[in-house]
Every structure is written in structure tokens, then in C-alpha cells.
């Protein structure tokens, strides 16, 4: 099996750095941009995330996740952390414009696109209210309280939907990885 980009980075292979950037730079940048107020903020976040990626490259295990998922995990962890540290809450101004966008946009990188399709298929199998809560939390990064406000449901129900949705998704994704992904 060919050595992955991250494994090469972990080995100290400098050429892997550029490859990593061209493969996943857009991914990290887009994640960072979505959760940052300004471009300068997003640039800082992106630099921090990549520093984390280099440091964690040695922990990457191709049998557990794809590189795209691994990198997204690192990025999300960092971004949630940054987001929590900054006291401001995200505005929901862009809500209407982006509200229906999840699922319609096709990522342009092959591996990322495969991952995305897989997750999207699984997402379709959730109950609509669970799906909506997950969309609002993961994509729009709204707090539980804001989601409750928007959907006009109690906070407890938001938590329940989020948790059930996540557990169901995990089941579905595990099943997918056992049966070898999308048909």
C-alpha cells in the first residue's frame, strides 16, 4: 500500500508538505473561513491548524480514517477551541443565503468528494429534524440555544436530536466502512 501524504510528512519528507497543501489546503482554508469573522482571522487559524497537522501527522492511521477526515477532525478541534475562546458569537447573517447549500455543493478534490458523498448518503437516512439540527450545528456552527430558538423547539429536544442523529450516523458510517463504502 502506498505511503500516505501524512505518513511521509511524519517521516520528514519535505516534498509531502507541498502535496498536503495542494490536496487539503482548500479544505482547511474553507473550514477556517467558515468559522472566522475576518480573512485575517481565517489565515491565523489555518496556520495554526497546519502546525497541528504536522505535529499530529505521526498519529495518522490509514486503517481508521481517510486523510481528509483526519485533517477535518484536527481542524474542527482547533476551530471549536478558537471559537470558544473568542467571546463573540457567530452572526447568522449568512444563514439565508447558505441555508440550503449543504448537499448541493460538490467538493472538487477526489478523496474529499468521496468522503462527502458517503456522509451525505448516510445523512439522508436520518429523521428530518435530526438532520436539520446536525446541519445547523456542524455547518452553521450555531449553539444549541440558537438552534432551539430558530427551530422553536425546547433546548432539551435540540440535544436529543443532535445526540440521536450522531449515534445513528455513526452506526451508518461504521456499516459503510465494513461493507466497503458507497456502491
Amino acid at each position: 500500500m502506498a505511503e500516505s501524504i501524512l505518513q511521509r510528512v511524519a517521516r520528514g519528507d519535505q516534498s509531502a508538505v507541498e502535496e498536503c497543501l495542494s490536496q487539503f489546503g482548500g479544505l482547511v482554508w474553507s473550514l477556517a473561513k467558515r468559522l472566522s469573522k475576518t480573512d485575517a482571522d481565517a489565515e491565523d487559524a489555518t496556520q495554526e491548524i497546519f502546525l497541528e497537522i504536522w505535529k499530529n501527522s505521526v498519529k495518522y492511521d490509514s486503517s481508521i480514517s481517510s486523510e481528509a477526515t483526519f485533517i477535518t477532525m484536527i481542524a474542527r478541534r482547533r476551530l471549536i477551541d478558537r471559537h470558544r475562546k473568542q467571546t463573540r458569537t457567530l452572526d447568522t447573517v449568512s444563514m439565508d443565503a447558505d441555508f440550503n447549500s449543504p448537499g448541493e455543493v460538490e467538493p472538487d478534490r477526489v478523496e474529499i468528494a468521496e468522503e462527502a458523498t458517503r456522509a451525505r448518503e448516510c445523512l439522508k437516512q436520518l429523521r428530518p429534524d435530526e438532520r436539520k439540527v446536525l446541519e445547523l450545528s456542524v455547518f452553521h456552527h450555531l449553539s444549541q440555544a440558537k438552534i432551539a430558538d430558530m427551530l422553536e423547539i425546547p433546548l432539551g429536544t435540540v440535544k436529543t436530536h443532535a445526540r440521536r442523529g450522531m449515534i445513528r450516523l455513526r452506526e451508518l458510517l461504521s456499516l459503510e466502512s465494513v461493507t466497503g463504502g458507497a456502491k
Partner: peptide
């Protein structure tokens, strides 16, 4: 993370 990927619109850095 997988969910995030499925929603994300990727831009160039």
C-alpha cells in the same frame, strides 16, 4: 468531521 466535509464548499487558499 465527515458531516462537515459533506456540507463544505471548498475554496482555494
Amino acid at each position: 468531521a465527515a458531516l462537515d466535509l459533506s456540507f463544505l464548499k471548498i475554496e482555494t487558499m
